[in-house]
Computed example of a mutant assay.
Amino acid sequence: MTATALVTGAGRGIGRAVAERLADEGIAVALLGRSPSSVADVHADLTRSGARATAVVADVTDPRAVSRAVREAEAALGPLDLVVNNAGLIDAKEVPFWEADFAQWWDVVETNLRGPANIDRAVLPGMVARRHGRIVNLGSGFAVGPDPHYSAYSVSKGALMRLTDTIAAPLAEHGVYVFDISPGAVATDMTAAMDMFEGKTDWYDIDLFLDAVVAVAHGRLDALSGRFLHAGKDDLGALAARAAELAESDARRLHLRPYGPDDPQR
Rank of each mutant, 00 (worst) to 15 (best):
R52E: 08
F179E: 05
T8S: 08
E245G: 03
N137E: 15
A30D: 03
V213Q: 00
L239N: 04
R12D: 04
L46T: 00
T164N: 12
A231F: 11
V66L: 05
T47C: 02
H255C: 10
G184E: 00
K233Y: 15
W98K: 02
A117C: 10
D180T: 10
D81L: 10
R12I: 00
L254C: 04
T188R: 07
D62G: 15
G133V: 02
G26C: 09
R114T: 11
Y153H: 05
D24I: 01
S151K: 09
A244S: 13
Y259F: 15
N112Q: 05
A152Q: 09
E99D: 14
A152T: 04
G50I: 00
L221C: 03
G115M: 13
V214K: 12
T166C: 06
V84N: 06
E245C: 01
I135E: 09
L224V: 13
I181D: 01
G133S: 07
D107T: 01
D120Q: 11
H230I: 11
D195M: 03
G139F: 04
A168E: 12
D189G: 03
R257N: 01
M194V: 11
L138D: 07
H132P: 06
L239E: 09
T8L: 04
L256T: 12
V178K: 03
A19E: 00
L254M: 12
A55G: 11
K157Y: 11
H132C: 13
T164G: 13
Q104F: 13
I14R: 06
E74T: 02
A244Y: 04
L224A: 09
G232L: 06
A185Y: 05
